[in-house]
Design a protein around this nucleic acid. Structure first.
Length: 378
DNA sequence: TCTTCAGTAAACAGAT
DNA sequence: AATCTGTTTACTGAAG
């Protein structure tokens, strides 16, 4: 059970009066604590956060460029990653990347800003700035940060509300979007709640290990260089109340036996689905290495287009806007140390790029580019 | 211009 | 009965 610190979520402002069933203030925050699984979303995440922190530190150290301001991710760690604290000290994300586009250009932002006294202040106000992450990534982060690596929808709401207070004042359609995403996005899979656990509506949702690297990569591309920290093993020991995490335990921590063959909800009572390998050493390994810890299990000849992981009704193939190329090649094969080192360098390059982006350099470049493009169109 | 994808709204059914 | 959850369809706008 978790009590949100007063004022953490901020006032429920800018609510659309016409939306009644999905009021975030009504159930998204307060109601979360009533769920047995709520603890999974709100329990202290010290282990994971330490891992995140370590990962961030490693990303810096590995590059041997601590003095290089452009590639030093310490500030990022401090500014962003610490905002992903789930232990009750979470702060609304208020970093340059929170509203990378700089104005909260969402359709909701108008509502929020026009009715919120709080949001009348800074342009970077997290209460009015839409997160730069897609719903898929938000869900991914929420699930990955839960000890059991699975969350009910309600807790996903709570996590998002907790870390992105923008949604507390946004029209409640975002919950619909979350559910829509969970249903349509193949990255997310539904798992049945434990047998004998009748309280609580709905199922638990987890990240399909198949798509975890892609989500991680997308997260990294979306201004989150330390995204691999989100592919961490569960912090809590296995228990009957949080079974799904062991589904993802394997050599690399992210395999799921027979899952791909399973249609529909995963039945957690089926132990034959479970890969039982819980070597803590391995856990440490993949939670602390800078390389993505979830090597793909798909045939190397068939790199999964991320578009396939998205909407079912949009599986016609074609381009995937989400990053693909980093998911292909050596990442999915066996890696030598040299490869890892190369990847570390690549990651640092990406991190540097992300930092430039965060600094607004790329944003302004893109903005000016778009501007000139529009002008040229005219 | 076309295509793809993300986001949103809405309707609906089933579960609680 | 009300609410929540999950699914599906349709549409729009941004972006490549």
């Amino acid at each position: 059970m978790h009590e949100y610190p007063p004022g953490l979520m901020g006032p429920i402002i800018g609510m659309s009066p016409d939306k009644k069933a999905e009021s975030p203030g009504a159930q998204g925050v307060c109601g979360a604590g009533t769920l047995p699984e709520a603890e999974s979303a709100s329990s202290p995440m010290a282990t994971s956060l330490e891992q995140i922190g370590r990962a961030g530190a490693l990303s810096v150290v590995a590059g041997e460029s601590e003095d290089d301001e452009l590639t030093n991710l310490n500030w990022l760690h401090e500014n962003l990653l610490q905002n992903f604290t789930l232990g009750g000290e979470a702060q609304p994300i208020n970093s340059p990347l929170f509203d990378i586009e700089g104005g909260g250009g969402s359709p909701h932002s108008n509502t929020a800003s026009s009715t919120s006294s709080i949001s009348a202040g800074s342009e970077r106000d997290p209460y009015k700035s839409k997160p730069p992450f897609s719903f898929s990534l938000l869900i991914y982060m929420a699930i990955e940060q839960s000890p059991s690596k699975s969350l009910p929808v309600k807790d996903i709401y709570s996590w998002i509300l907790k870390h992105f207070p923008y949604f507390s004042s946004a029209p409640t359609g975002w919950k619909n979007s979350v559910r829509h995403n969970l249903s349509l996005n193949k990255c997310f899979r539904k798992v049945e709640r434990s047998i004998g656990k009748t309280n609580g509506k709905g199922s638990l949702w987890c990240v399909h290990p198949e798509f975890r690297p892609m989500l991680m990569q997308a997260l990294k591309k979306q201004h989150f260089p330390n995204a691999h920290a989100f592919c961490t093993p569960p912090a809590s020991p296995p228990s009957a109340s949080s079974p799904p995490h062991h589904l993802f335990t394997s050599e690399q921590g992210c395999a799921l036996k027979d899952l791909d063959d399973q249609e529909g909800p995963i039945d957690l009572s089926r132990r034959d689905l479970v890969v039982v390998s819980r070597d803590p050493k391995q856990d440490h390994n993949y939670s602390s290495t800078p390389v993505p810890p979830c090597p793909r299990q798909m045939p190397p000849s068939q790199p999964v287009s991320f578009s396939l992981a998205l909407h079912h009704d949009q599986e016609r193939g074609g381009r995937a806007r989400w990053p693909r190329s980093p998911l292909q090649g050596p990442l999915f094969g066996k890696r030598s140390r040299r490869d890892s080192r190369t990847d570390v360098d690549e990651e640092l390059k990406e991190a540097a790029g992300s930092l430039l982006h965060l600094a607004g350099i790329r944003t302004s470049l893109v903005a000016s580019r778009r501007k000139s493009r529009k002008i040229s169109r005219k």
